[in-house]
Simulated assay, not measured.
Amino acid sequence: MSETRCYPRHANTDAGEIEFRLMARADEAAVLAFAKGLPTHDLLFLPRNISEPKVLSAWINEIERGAITSLLAVKDGRVVGCGTLVRDPHSWSPHVGEIRMVVSLDVRGQGVGRALSQETFALALGAGLEKLSVQMTVDQRAAIALFESLGFKAEALLRDQVRDVDGKKHDIVVLGHNIAQFQAQLEAFGLPEAVRP
């Protein structure tokens, strides 16, 4: 899925230089430490709790199977973010991908999330996907604003969709981005290279 992009790649952010690399089984311990350092609320939009070792192991199995591509954002040898592109070529929606992204508290607001989301978006373009979705709890305003700035628009509100460890229910917002329409608009303006990975 990432043939058109070479890794590792680097980006300069306000948090310093960030290395992006594809996640592999060798990263399991580092990703588990990263996930355990995240507030539980930040994990609610994910289908499973990635701070559980068995869930992380299953995630890596999906990476090795080719169903998921995950990018790690690494600063000074420590995982500070993860962007994942999920797609199912055998479903009724092989043209649609889902982005899942989490970033450490200590680098938020410093451009790491933006760089990671742009890199994950580029992976989706390289995979030939036509539409992307992303979901998060409605109170994650900074994340919603970030994805809206990339052209995502609200498509659904799922009320009481997830329940946290204290039993409190939370709403989930689903944002979508029609890549095919975006590419067609750029081509109409003579700018197709703007969306090439």
Rank of each mutant, 00 (worst) to 15 (best):
L44N: 06
A29R: 07
L43N: 04
A73Y: 03
L43Q: 09
L22V: 14
A67W: 13
I68L: 14
S70T: 15
R25C: 01
I63S: 04
F34S: 03
L46G: 08
A24M: 08
D27R: 03
G37E: 11
D76F: 03
K36R: 15
L71H: 10
L44H: 03
A30E: 01
A26H: 08
S70A: 15
G37D: 15
L43I: 00
A24S: 14
I50V: 13
F45P: 05
L43Y: 05
E52I: 11
L32A: 05
D27I: 00
D27P: 02
A58V: 04
E28K: 14
D76M: 06
K75H: 13
F45N: 06
A58E: 15
R48G: 00
A24L: 02
A33Y: 06
A29N: 04
R25F: 07
P39M: 07
S51C: 08
I63V: 14
F34V: 08
K54E: 15
A58G: 12
S57H: 14
G66R: 07
E28D: 09
G37I: 12
V74L: 05
E28R: 15
D42M: 05
V55C: 05
A26L: 02
D27H: 09
K36M: 10
N61W: 05
D76T: 03
L72W: 05
A73E: 06
N49E: 06
I50H: 11
I63L: 14
F45I: 02
D27V: 02
F45M: 04
G66I: 00
E28G: 09
L56H: 10
F34L: 05
A30N: 01
L32E: 00
A67L: 13
S70N: 12
H41G: 02
M23H: 06
S70M: 11
W59H: 14
E62A: 15
A58L: 11
V31F: 13
N61R: 14
S70E: 13
E52P: 00
I60S: 08
L44T: 01
F34R: 04
P39E: 08
R48E: 14
L32P: 09
I68M: 11
E28L: 13
L72H: 03
T69D: 12
D27W: 03
K54S: 15
L71A: 06
S51E: 06
L71C: 08
S57Q: 15
L46I: 05
L38K: 10
D42R: 06
A29K: 08
R78H: 10
T69N: 09
K75L: 03
G66V: 01
F34Q: 01
K36E: 14
F45D: 03
R25D: 09
H41D: 09
L22S: 08
P47L: 06
P53Y: 11
S70V: 10
F34D: 02
K36I: 04
F45H: 07
A29L: 07
A24N: 11
H41R: 11
S70H: 10
A26G: 13
H41W: 00
I60H: 12
R48Q: 12
D42H: 12
A67H: 13
A35R: 12
S51L: 04
N49R: 14
I68C: 09
L32V: 00
A58N: 12
L44A: 01
E28N: 10
R65A: 15
